[in-house]
């Protein structure tokens, strides 16, 4: 069998989602955001909810998510995406509203907004990409940076006496009565990506059931911030990040 026999439109089993735009992503090589964007595009396409979905992008590397995912988007101030999403969801209850946030955005400057959106049980989906660093500003310590982890503002490693401890914000949010589905996944292997896709799909389906906030944390990498290759970053993540941030469902009601 020749390659020309295989490379035919009818044999396609995996291709770029129609909801991913033609814009070249500004993300660094191997960035987790690209994978998560792709999953969102596929899920929105498969659930056929493009015209009902409104995304809220954060401040951070994913600020430009709206350039890549062909849906309506609002770009929120740093950490405020859950407040913005609250109003969009309350004023357009028939829509699927999601926030897309990083660990600095969600677990530091936006702590109050995520806590209270979760506590009110807003009918939104929260996509939380946790790579334990401020990527866009050049690799500073984030609230989820691990102890000992070197960043540009913890050049000698994160020291709990100086910097406090890494925060397991997702477990905190699971304690709140307004959250219905809280899970932590990753996007480093084909198997993990398939599980993440299932989790995000379920989160969007929960919107239809109006059960409250669904949170999908994706433990990710930042190879530029971590100063490792994408492949080495995935290995480092599995070895170190998963210990502090174990993969699996935290709450599902």
């Amino acid at each position: 069998m020749e390659l020309t026999d295989i490379i035919k439109a009818e044999n396609i089993v995996s291709q770029k989602s129609k909801l991913i735009t033609e814009n070249v992503m500004h993300y660094c090589p191997g960035c987790t955001h690209g994978v998560v964007h792709k999953l969102l595009a596929e899920i929105i396409e498969e659930l056929d909810i493009q015209e009902k979905t409104i995304g809220v992008s954060p401040v951070g590397c994913a600020v430009f998510a709206y350039n890549y995912l062909d849906i309506d988007w609002s770009q929120a101030a740093h950490g405020r995406a859950p407040a913005v999403a609250t109003a969009i969801s309350r004023l357009q209850p028939e829509k699927y509203v999601f926030t897309y946030q990083g660990d600095g955005d969600l677990a530091s400057i936006g702590c109050a907004e995520i806590m209270h959106a979760c506590n009110r049980g807003e009918n939104i989906v929260v996509i939380f990409v946790n790579n334990a660093i401020y990527g866009m500003t050049g690799g500073q310590m984030s609230p989820t940076t691990l102890l000992g982890q070197v960043t540009s503002t913890t050049p000698h490693g994160r020291d709990e006496k100086l910097n406090g401890f890494p925060i397991k914000i997702t477990e905190l949010l699971a304690q709140l009565d307004g959250t219905c589905y809280v899970t932590r996944q990753s996007a480093d292997t084909p198997g993990a990506i398939r599980k993440t896709k299932k989790a995000i799909t379920k989160a969007f389906q929960n919107t239809r059931l109006a059960k409250g906030v669904s949170i999908v944390e994706i433990v990710g990498t930042c190879s530029s911030g971590w100063k490792m290759s994408p492949v080495a970053s995935n290995e480092w993540m599995r070895e170190h990040m998963f210990k502090k941030y174990p993969i699996g469902d935290i709450k599902d009601i």
């Binding site: 809220v56 609002s74 929120a76 101030a77 405020r80 407040a83 913005v84 999403a85 609250t86 109003a87 969009i88 309350r90 004023l91 109050a112 907004e113 209270h116």
Partner: peptide, 12 residues
């Protein structure tokens, strides 16, 4: 802060 950002969301 949350209130004005909700206004932002609604105005969107």
């Amino acid at each position: 802060i949350a209130a004005i950002n909700m206004v932002y969301g609604g105005a969107c």
